[in-house]
Amino acid sequence: MPKYKLIYFNARGFGEMARMVFAQAGVEYEDVRFERDEWPKFKPYTPFGQAPVLEVDGVQIADSAAIARYLAREFGLAGKTRIEEAQVDMFAGAAYDLIKPTIDIYNAEGEKKAELVKKFQEETAPKFLAKFESTLAENKSGFLVGDGVTWADFTLMHFMSWIWSQLPEDFATKYSHVKEHGKRVESLPKIAAWIAKRPVTAT
């Protein structure tokens, strides 16, 4: 078994998908965390000046999606066929596209922030959530692809845990399958155990 080291801020953020893959697979790894003010010390040793970084026997892999995808394929959480793998990548990518505007919202102020919130609530979120909702309604397994959990489910569940706070309450009734999906993934025994023991962080 390779030696794994995940290096990221002391936060859930973009490192959490990899941590959930490790948890679901039952694979041990070194969870290296650093505080915001320590980032300048770590940054020069990352491939692109970004975190997270995964080290596999000393070989570095950057980009949170690339990391989660690699681990999921190693541990059987990326789809059972090539078509399923492509679908998993598609839905995970869509979840990333959904979360990106919220970063701009978080960093904006005043009228610009209000403008971004309006666009997100009226255009971006409905477009993506409608597809997630219909997919989950059609796939009777309760997951996005196939008959079991994949890293796309971890990605959607994790990002939606933040996105729900950016949306009006009635969105939860419009997209009930998405809401239930999050609860379903969180309640998986190994994921629930990870959530219960992981460090408590603001993000």
Rank of each mutant, 00 (worst) to 15 (best):
A193L: 09
F48Y: 10
G58M: 11
H181K: 07
K183H: 13
L54A: 04
W39F: 13
T173L: 15
P126D: 01
F132L: 10
K183Q: 14
E55D: 04
K119S: 13
M17G: 08
Y8F: 07
Y4M: 08
L136C: 14
I163W: 13
K41I: 12
T173K: 15
T155I: 08
Y106A: 09
G13S: 14
R82D: 10
G182N: 06
A137R: 07
K43F: 09
A192E: 12
F14D: 02
L77H: 02
D147C: 13
Q87H: 12
G182Q: 11
A11P: 07
T81P: 09
V178I: 14
T135E: 14
M20T: 01
M20F: 08
Q121R: 06
L54V: 03
S187R: 09
G110K: 01
E138A: 15
I67F: 11
F91Y: 12
A65T: 03
S64N: 06
W162H: 13
W39I: 04
P199C: 04
N107K: 02
A94I: 00
G148K: 14
P189R: 04
V21T: 00
E38W: 04
K179P: 11
Y106K: 04
E109D: 12
M157P: 09
A152L: 02
V27T: 10
A114I: 00
I7M: 07
K113W: 07
D37N: 13
L71R: 02
P199H: 05
I99Q: 11
L136F: 15
L167A: 07
F120V: 01
F143Y: 14
K140P: 15
L156H: 08
K3S: 12
M17H: 02
R184K: 15
T81G: 07
T46K: 03
V200I: 09
P168G: 02
K43Y: 06
A172V: 11
A114M: 00
L167S: 06
Q87C: 12
F159W: 11
I163T: 03
D97P: 15
H181C: 15
E85D: 06
A202R: 04
E115L: 10
W164I: 02
Y4E: 03
E122A: 03
T46F: 13
F128N: 04
K80M: 07
A65R: 05
I191K: 00
